[in-house]
């Protein structure tokens, strides 16, 4: 099943609705990486609340998605990993490494907004001021 992707301002939201095949996951990866450029998005939220199984392939593909999107200049947040899914992932030794995860959609949006605010402040303060 194809994952619907919504454009919400500067963000893209991919809300996974049901179990995905390997091909669906790879398609999601390709579409997101392409859409980030097309819509000049700053952030991507991948909502996995509906997934009750995340095996090694799903985990690796989500990690790849986040890394590719970072290379395209945007941030990715994975939201909604269920307690039992987290448990199985840890038992299997699967990690998302430095990929950002948040409890739910709301926290994901808050994270992206804070990154946006953070980067503009940084930009402002990064202007070198030299006083003589």
């Amino acid at each position: 099943m194809e994952v619907p992707i919504l454009k919400q301002g500067e963000y893209l939201i991919a809300s996974i609705q049901s179990a995905l095949t390997d091909a669906d996951l790879l398609q999601l990866r390709d579409v997101l990486v392409e859409h980030v450029g097309r819509y000049r998005s700053r952030g991507v939220i991948v909502d996995v609340t509906a997934l009750d199984v995340m095996d090694s392939f799903a985990t690796r593909t989500l990690r790849d998605i986040a890394h590719m999107i970072r290379l395209r200049g945007a941030e990715t947040v994975i939201v909604g990993i269920q307690p039992e899914v987290a448990f199985s992932m840890v038992q299997l030794g699967l990690t998302l490494e430095e990929v950002v995860t948040r409890l739910d959609f709301e926290e994901g949006i808050a994270y992206l907004n804070s990154k946006k605010a953070g980067s503009s402040t940084k930009l402002g303060s990064a202007i070198p001021r030299r006083t003589k």
Binding site: D52, V53, M54, D55, S56, F57, Q82, P83, E84, V85, F87, S88, Q91, L92
Partner: peptide, 17 residues
Amino acid sequence: ASAEATLIATAISELAR
């Protein structure tokens, strides 16, 4: 229980892989 069902489903998925 659903947590156990998830573990079992994940294990089957890995074995199938």
